[in-house]
Design a protein around this nucleic acid. Sequence first.
DNA 1: TTTAGTCACGTTTTT
DNA 2: CGTGACTAAA
Length: 687
Amino acid sequence: MIDKNTISESYNEKQREAIAFSGKHLLLLAGAGTGKTKTIVGRAEYLINQGYRPEKIQILTFTKRAASEIVERVKAGISDQDVRSLNGSTFHSWCNQLIIKFPNLFGAANYTVIDPDDQLSIMKMACGAASEDYGKTRLKPQQLLDLFSFARNTRINLTETLRKLLFKGKDDLQTTEDINALKPQVELLIKEYQSQKLRQQYLDYDDLLLVVANRLNKDAEAREILAKAYDHILIDEMQDTNPLQWYLLKPFENICHLFCVGDDAQSIYSFRGADFKNVHLFQERVANSEIKVLDKNYRSTQEILDLSNWLLETSPINYNKRLTASRGAGKQPTIVNVANQFEEANYIANHILESFSEGGNSFTDFLILSRSQYYTRPLQAVFLQKKIPYQTFGGRKFLEAAHIKDLVSVLRVINNPMDEIAWIRFFTFIHGIGAVRATSYMSEVMRIEPENVHGLDLTSIIPGKEGIKAKSYYDAAYQNRGNVKMAIKDLYKTMEFDLAMKYSKDWYEKRKGDFPVLEILSENYATLGEFISEGILDNSANVAGSNTLGGSKINTAELKDHVTISTVHSAKGLEADVCFVLNVSPKTYPSAYSLGNIEEVEEDRRVLYVALTRAKNDLIITRSKESINAYHHQTDKDEDDTSDSAYFLEGLPEHLALQTSPKSFTAPVTDAKKANTIDLDLGMDFS
DNA sequence: TTTAGTCACGTTTTT
DNA sequence: CGTGACTAAA
């Protein structure tokens, strides 16, 4: 379809300039809805049409979902070439692939990637091993991990990390003294954590990036090898990259071309070390680079943008941004004042069902955004009750669910017999074995010579019926170790009864159906090791309350019609006809946690901005009456409260939004006819 | 001494 | 919903 040397008419002038950019490196500042993803897709297509090999183009995004969307779209646009080898992934997944692809270069190919739960277990072990120092700190293992991760991601030293995270950035004599007193213990515990990890051959998320980045920054030979592997790197959401990711990208400045796309007004990851000001320093940091801008919005109506623009303009920070709608005027945004979460949920459910009876809509037209995952629970309950199909984004991941981890722990010990956490999880799963005995059995396993560990007879370690049980699990997986899917299938058959017992409360409702999904998921992986590592890094599948299946690898082909419920953070890049933004109340926007800290308040503002700019035609904001009243009440009294003007919608000009309350919905709600035809049974069509 | 089971509690945001 | 503290039972 696409002529090799011209770019499709569907792009505007500026998009085309970016797509055909012929300099070395580019930063494209693209506001919300200005065709950011489309332009990345266009760039990838253009490069392939120019003759660059698809496997030498790497697309980097923040979420797996965004990555696969871009790759799918490129593949759909190019028919006559082999674009299967085009690779799109998250920073973490990409580093993991590099580590596996170049085993000699990074020397960590046999390591197991661990998730945050495992990190916590290891940090607990480390604190146990160095209990004297741990006792002096009064810090929890999770806090220690947060400190360490923040330091590594921002690449600032421990003293300053402690100051920022524990002492709110205070820089006085007393604080410095406190820090100096605390630092040696923290340092020691982190060292212990590091050595535990190394001994058990684990890589945590930060390690993945650091292993690759360190090597490339220090070793010219490594850079040469990768220079042969890559021509172009296309990076999405550049404003969210943190110093560690910059450190990873820096060597590529001389290896290949960088095409970076971002929007400073949508930077919402500072808690992970990202700094939106970084995009402003792009040209100073990257030699031979240029900046281009996209500012024409194709997504929303002008009314929606007026409200969004107003939000940014009331900020003390100058974002220098004013989006204009190429689509023109439409419907005014609505603010609905609700009494409580239940009314809010019902209002939304009824609104969706009503627009159904009027015809023309499908569930996919609706997107519901929340500040936190937690807040959407009542909504999910109402949706289940009214049989509205929905999918959630954000929240606990599929492979982090307890019942899945139980099964995967057996696969993990076969894949990496040094994996102490997995051994302990495996052993404690067996009824009658608790933490104490599990730990002692695990130590016995560790004493076995490495060459004899594979395929060992567990009854020689664990006596009685527990030993027989352990052996039966182990063997079921071990006999199928060459075939991931078979291993899961057999292992599940062996474990099913015990799993059902352990999770008897919600086994049939929530858990059972996940195992067929796990089997399907595993089909994409050739080896146990790949399944475990990549699976852990795959954020796209989640379980929490979903009544459809998550996972880009499972069902991109047969997407069902469903409403999307998402946290704002997970919604970047999403858009929808009708968009609900939940609970835009004081103490949420900005969050009570952020009050008093200007930078955090401004980040919350950007969170709201991202939420508002998802809507194409209809933007509906809900907020709780009580919190508004309480807010006014409180601020009337506290004259000197510095936060009295903090609430983002305070002082909103009347013409920008229409205020209403939910009309009473006493009539029994009739479910949409369409809704009834949708099968809510989990995992049903995968047998 | 070890394990299993119950209850209350508190939850930003993500790889 | 998952964690942590506590109790009862093995």
